[in-house]
Design a binder for these strands. Structure first.
Length: 689
DNA sequence: CGAGCGTGTCATGCT
DNA sequence: CTAGCATGACACGCT
């Protein structure tokens, strides 16, 4: 097994910068990496890689390092194999980083994990490194990772760190990540602090109030997440999604400086003597960059470039309203033209990201000295495949062809006749991905101009859809479902079912997911799991979730509608969704009630049958007692007549005489022929007395 | 293949 | 009048 060389060794910094330039050209926040400040530490990286030893498994270098940490996926993963040597080497690396006097500010969870892993692997260096990090972050920028450092060695780390590495999924299956609650706490706290910082920035910026509200909501989310961090240890999917949201939010604030591609290229080309190494060494003086919009940035690369970037996450921010641009311009993707022009000679052997990264990166053992152009060529072909695919994928959430088809459905659920042309199943396996994800390239509906923040958390929002992302998003594909909280199944028999929509939808999801698998083959996996209303809402880019629409009180609902500009179609659909959702809940309640009534009636029947049995038994007992009394009376009668004698001393025949009790209690012997029926009756009454 | 069941949806009446 | 609820009826899919 050969070792892969880090991207930036032998000029890999230029590669990394290229990614950043591509980000800048996409008008994303240029969140440059710490290691850009450093000279290409080939030796260090070789040490790092060699220390881990060869393995037979996939050798995955994270294509879009979230924090400038390159290495094998299983090394990045906290539960990965051979973690300790890697952590040791990482510790040496970080110590050398410290020696260079460059502040290492853990801004992401991968950063935090790296620091933690170093701390875990080197107990001595733990507090030193972290102290250095804390000291470097004096001024409040850095986030405390002390808690993460105190986690058990070999443990800890964030599932999101693993999520940033595409090929890590398989490793994770073998050794599922079990981040400690401390680490999650620390990570959540860290993100909280970063968010708070961002919040302040937002306050100083000219963003509108919605931004602040969203940030507040995000803070609440994060606080809640902080509280539930321990419980969330087994929910990496949701965590990863929250990370994406927070990152999105971070970028939405737009406080990070965005550079244009041309500016940076001019910078590079105008200072060839400096070379990237000089630039990377940090001895480059501040450079003025004109962004073409009458503002000039004084960029000191040794100071300004201190952030890390996750290209994948940044890509997901394409529909960001902060950097919203003309959809036509976006779809035509002119910004990539310079790079595409640079790489007009396409590499036929390029491999799709996520398929085989060994073909993507130069091998360490080869030690080929590549020129910048070569590196750019090697990188850009693949990177811009990614960029184009991801940008297309993020815009694929809306397919204009989907709308009429969705609304052509009959009212019943049978109307799913979506014949969308994109085939998601082939996306993940075929290399000719351009045509696959490009189905929605030209979609420039006005609905698309809905701001991204409005779509956050919405049904049709820009959730990363695994298949749509063309193998780029390797976060857990269950994150979406997790966020929809479909795991909340309430089987209580109360009729106050505020979240019953969740219950019902979850039931219907599991139920209709199967049927839609048949009818909606053209839909991707996520769409397949959506209900009809959710697909409609997604198609119309309705910025609310179905649960919100249905479960919200009418006042809040009307306020919510009034706060957003919605077309008549959207309003109509929203009200229909609400009506149907309410009625669905009502129908469920009605059926439950009916079922309860039936059950109660069955119980009543059982109770009445039991009562009947008891009464039957009582009647039998009474009859038995009556018979006993009759028998006793008969015996008494015979006994009396056996002792009776007439005037002549002869026994009295009981067939000719009868006993009659008078009112005063005296007993008379009366011949039967003298007894009229009425007397006989009275006599019988008297007898019974 | 039909029956039974669960579910969503619509229409309607009532509050 | 509007919104919501309750319920019968129907359609659909699954077992």
């Amino acid at each position: 097994m050969k070792y892969l060389k880090p991207w930036w060794s032998d000029g890999g910094g230029l590669l990394h910068l290229t990614i950043l330039l591509s980000l800048a050209e996409l008008h994303l926040d240029l969140d440059l990496d710490l290691y850009l400040l450093l000279p290409p530490p080939t030796r260090l990286w070789d040490e790092l890689l060699l220390a881990s030893g060869p393995t037979s498994s996939a050798y995955a270098l994270s294509p879009f390092p979230a924090s400038g940490v390159w290495g094998r996926a299983d090394q990045l993963h906290p539960k990965g194999r051979e973690l300790d040597p890697a952590a040791e080497s990482a510790g040496r690396l970080l110590r050398e980083v410290r020696a260079l006097g460059v502040p290492f500010i853990p801004r992401t969870r991968v950063d935090a994990w790296l620091v933690h892993s170093v701390a875990a692997g080197d107990a001595d260096g733990a507090h030193g490194l972290l102290g250095a990090a804390a000291a470097a972050s004096a001024g409040g920028v850095g986030a405390s990772v002390d808690d993460s450092s105190q986690a058990a060695p070999g443990d800890g780390g964030d599932p999101r760190a693993a999520a940033s590495s595409p090929l890590d999924a398989g490793e994770e299956e073998k050794a599922p990540a079990e981040p400690t609650a401390q680490v999650l706490d620390a990570a959540a706290r860290q993100e909280n602090e970063v968010l708070g910082e961002r919040h302040q920035e937002v306050g100083h910026s000219s963003q509108n109030e919605e931004n602040e509200q969203r940030v507040s909501a995000q803070e609440q989310k994060l606080q809640h997440k902080n509280e539930d961090a321990r419980e969330a240890a087994d929910k990496p999917d949701r965590e990863a999604e929250k990370t994406t949201e927070s990152r999105n939010e971070r970028s939405l604030n737009g406080t990070d400086t965005a550079f244009s591609l041309e500016d940076l290229f001019q910078l590079l080309s105008s200072q060839p003597e400096n070379s990237l190494e000089g630039l990377l060494l940090g001895d480059t003086p501040p450079v003025s960059i004109n962004d073409g919009m009458n503002s000039t940035y004084n960029v000191n690369f040794s100071q300004a470039i201190s952030h890390d970037v996750n290209l994948h996450e940044a890509m997901l921010l394409c529909p960001d309203n902060t950097f919203r641009r003309d959809p036509v311009a976006r779809t035509s993707q002119p910004p990539q033209e310079p790079f595409l022009h640079l790489n007009s000679h396409t590499n036929s052997e390029q491999t799709l990201p996520g398929t085989n990264w060994t073909g993507f990166l130069p091998l360490v053992g080869n030690q080929i000295h590549l020129t910048s152009e070569d590196l750019l060529h090697d990188l850009d072909i693949n990177i811009f495949d990614e960029i184009s695919l991801m940008s297309l994928a993020t815009e694929e959430g809306f397919d204009p062809m989907e709308v009429p088809q969705l609304f052509q459905e009959p009212d019943s659920d049978s109307g799913l006749s979506l014949n969308s042309s994109h085939n998601s199943t082939s996306v993940t396996k075929s290399n000719s991905s351009h045509s696959m994800c490009g189905g929605a390239t030209g979609s420039s509906s006005d609905l698309e101009s809905l701001s991204h923040h409005d779509l956050e958390g919405a049904v049709g929002g820009y959730y990363p859809e695994p298949n749509k992302l063309c193998h780029v998003d390797h976060r857990s594909d269950s994150g979406f479902h997790g966020d929809l909280a479909f795991q909340h199944l309430f089987h209580n028999h109360t009729y106050h079912l505020q979240p019953s929509g969740i219950e019902s939808t979850s039931n219907s999801f599991s139920r209709y997911g199967k049927s839609q698998k048949i009818r909606g083959r053209c839909l991707n996996d996520t769409d397949r799991n959506l209900s009809r209303d959710e697909r409609r809402a997604k198609a119309l880019h309705i910025p609310f979730s179905v649960d919100e629409i249905v479960g919200m009180p009418v006042e809040s609902f009307n306020n919510m509608l009034s706060r957003h500009y919605l077309t008549d179609l959207q309003m109509s659909l929203i009200r229909d969704i609400r009506r149907r959702g309410k009625n669905k809940v009502a129908a469920q309640n009605c059926r439950k009630r009916k079922l309860d009534i039936i059950l109660n009636l069955e119980d009543d029947v059982c109770n009445l049958q039991a009562k009947k049995e008891i009464l039957k038994r009582e009647r039998a007992q009474y009859n038995k007692a009556i018979n006993i009394l009759k028998q006793k009376l008969h015996n008494l009668y015979r006994d009396i007549f056996s002792r009776l004698r007439d005037d002549e001393g002869r026994p009295v025949n009981p067939n000719q005489y009868t006993l009659q009790c008078s009112q005063d209690g005296s007993v008379l012997i009366v011949p039967k022929e003298l007894m009229t029926p009425g007397h006989r009756k009275e006599n019988q009454k008297g007898k019974t007395k």
